[in-house]
């Protein structure tokens, strides 16, 4: 056996997964993203039973399991419910630092995640104070909208 062992061990075989998908967003999300792209507005769906206003919009209320029916315009301002500032680089993810927050847009019952821009993230203590829960933000729409969630981001008020 000793003859079979080599100085270059362990032997490693490399592997990669490259898998392409085309996700159909469905009619509900298509309406959300069309309004976002064409009219720079954010819509949520209200449950006719429990009256909660869900964003991201859902075809069925996940609490009552009845079809949601009422499109409701929400925002453009809202309140921070949670945030993080990413300082570590991760392969396949954006170059740090960047801030992500969950924000309850005015009129919504749930919080919607997005990046928060225009915050100096170089000092974690100051940046985290600026992004504190309860602070208010406004939605900033990008000029060239493509019907993606990154068509907007949050900016501190």
């Amino acid at each position: 056996m000793s003859d079979m062992a080599t100085a270059s061990s362990p032997l490693i075989h490399p592997g990669e997964w490259h898998i392409h998908y085309d996700y159909a967003v469905g009619e509900i999300a298509e309406r959300f993203f069309t309004e976002l792209r064409d009219n720079a507005t954010i819509y949520a769906l209200r449950c006719p039973s429990c009256k909660l206003v869900f964003v991201p919009p859902r075809a069925y209320c996940e609490r009552c399991f009845v079809r949601t029916t009422d499109w409701v315009k929400i925002g453009p301002e809202g309140v921070i419910e949670a945030f993080t500032i990413v300082y570590e680089p991760f392969d396949g993810l954006p170059v740090p630092p960047y801030a992500v927050a969950y924000v309850t847009l005015d009129g919504a019952s749930t919080a919607l995640a997005n990046f928060v821009t225009d915050v100096d993230l170089s000092d974690p203590e100051q940046a985290s104070a600026a992004l504190a829960i309860g602070n208010r933000v406004i939605v900033d729409f990008v000029d060239e909208r493509k019907g993606l969630i990154t068509d907007f981001h949050y900016r501190l008020l």
Binding site: F54, R63, E81, T104, A108, S109, T110, A111, L112, A113
Partner: peptide, 13 residues
């Protein structure tokens, strides 16, 4: 729910 935002807004249970 898979949506973390549902556990933060005023509609959270």
């Amino acid at each position: 729910t898979v949506y973390m935002g549902d556990k933060m807004g005023p509609g959270r249970d």
